[in-house]
Amino acid sequence: MVEKINLTCLGCPMGCPLQLSIVDGEIREVTGYECKRGEAYAKQEYTDPRRMVSTTVSCPTGLWPRLPVKTVDPVPKDRVPAVVQTLHTLEVKAPIRMGQIILENVAGTGVTVIATRSLPEMPEAD
């Protein structure tokens, strides 16, 4: 039984439509690409698709109430919801420096989450 999977190559703006033939969970053939980046992309995306995650965490004392954060490395695509949900239940305290570690091993992925901006405290109202 051959399973067909369609992907769009992100190797360049061409966006070649790739078709993967899968047999027993293994890639048998990749077609549709116009350069060799297409094949490599297809293999990575099929065997271990990963995504960078950026979202915000709560920072009630900050100049803004949300602090933007990101994973320093991509996480497995199917773990993205878990990563985001973990971060959305987090609360941090200002001041924050850009690059500061917010959470290590987020949702068991082994990936670290850092702040993507510095966030001073909200100044006291006059």
Partner: peptide
């Protein structure tokens, strides 16, 4: 940039992929 918290900025200029706030800062 401060509101563009996704990554994808800076590949040409900084040779690494940054988020908007990082690029701005």
């Amino acid at each position: 940039l401060n509101q563009c918290i996704h990554s994808g900025f800076g590949l040409h200029h900084f040779k690494e992929e940054l988020t908007g706030p990082e690029y701005a800062e």
